[in-house]
């Protein structure tokens, strides 16, 4: 395979329709619908336990769905195995970093490109591109297990980029980063969706990052959607203020 692009790289929307997920008696997701367009950054926020990570896990096939459907463009990916979903153009990162610790930074990113069926040469080219995008050039030959925490995050994101997904879900990319590292990450991520035509969905508790980075927000509470819109709009929704942002957010 010389052309190792994801199978439907022309799809312009990731569509999630009425997704429902139960854990025993608990309804973790209750008919959640959202659309992620290419080129936009969508923030998925909500208090702890509101179902954000569960939503990412069911979309990417890690957990089976109990109801609802997921599409990449016209292609349905509901309950497909994770690797098929990855190949269909939907990438993700994890809350807890899962790098290949005995592989170098370069190899970590290369594996991703290789898994898309790229030739070795193309995989290298792609990996280098992703590494540059995340400012990791100086660390290329280092073992991933030896990197400082903040850089591990960036390697994980670079690895996700190398899959050249049409849509990418980042689960708490700023978790554990200090303010400076979080700002660096913001600067790196902000221009990418538009430049690459990538739809980016970000879950994070760092509201500073979310508010500055995201074009739109989707708010979950107890598995239900309680608001969506631009960051400014969302701040004004009473339920959101009550459930999540707290009363102080109204003013600023």
């Amino acid at each position: 395979m010389s052309d190792c692009r994801s199978e439907n790289s022309k799809a312009d929307e990731l569509v999630i329709q009425n997704v429902t997920k139960n854990f025993a008696g608990l309804r973790a997701l209750d008919s959640v619908s959202l659309t992620l367009k290419r080129g936009e950054i969508l923030g998925l926020i909500g208090p702890n336990g509101s179902g954000k990570t569960t939503l990412i896990n069911v979309i990417t096939g890690l957990l089976p769905l109990d109801g609802g459907r997921v599409f990449i463009g016209e292609v349905e990916i509901t309950n497909k195995p994770p690797y098929e979903i990855a190949r269909a153009g939907l990438g993700r990162t994890f809350q807890t970093i899962r790098l290949f610790r005995e592989l170098t930074v370069m190899e970590n990113v290369e594996v991703a490109a290789v898994s898309m069926g790229c030739s070795r040469k193309e995989a290298k080219r792609r990996a280098l591109l992703a590494i540059e995008e995340l400012g990791l050039e100086d660390w290329i030959g280092r073992l991933a297990g030896e990197l400082p925490y903040g850089l591990e995050r960036r390697v994980e994101i670079a690895r996700a980029f190398a899959l050249q997904p049409s849509f990418l879900l980042l689960d708490e990319p700023a978790a554990g980063l200090n303010e400076e590292e979080s700002d660096q990450l913001l600067d790196m991520l902000a221009p990418i969706p538009e430049r690459k035509g990538l739809g980016l969905l970000i879950v994070d508790h760092d509201m500073r990052l979310i508010m500055r980075l995201c074009h739109r927000l989707h708010v979950l509470s107890y598995g239900r959607t309680i608001g969506e819109g631009t960051p400014d709009e969302v701040r004004r929704i009473p339920q959101v203020i009550e459930a999540y942002l707290g009363k102080t957010a109204v003013g600023g």
């Binding site: 990417t60 890690l62 994770p82 690797y83 098929e84 990855a86 190949r87 899962r98 290949f100 610790r101 005995e102 592989l103 190899e107 970590n108 290369e110 594996v111 991703a112 290789v114 898994s115 898309m116 690895r159 899959l163």
Partner: peptide, 17 residues
Amino acid sequence: IALRAAADNFRMTRLMG
């Protein structure tokens, strides 16, 4: 590289396709 990645974390390797 795929073999070493799999030996390192097979689950992740699979998730990546």
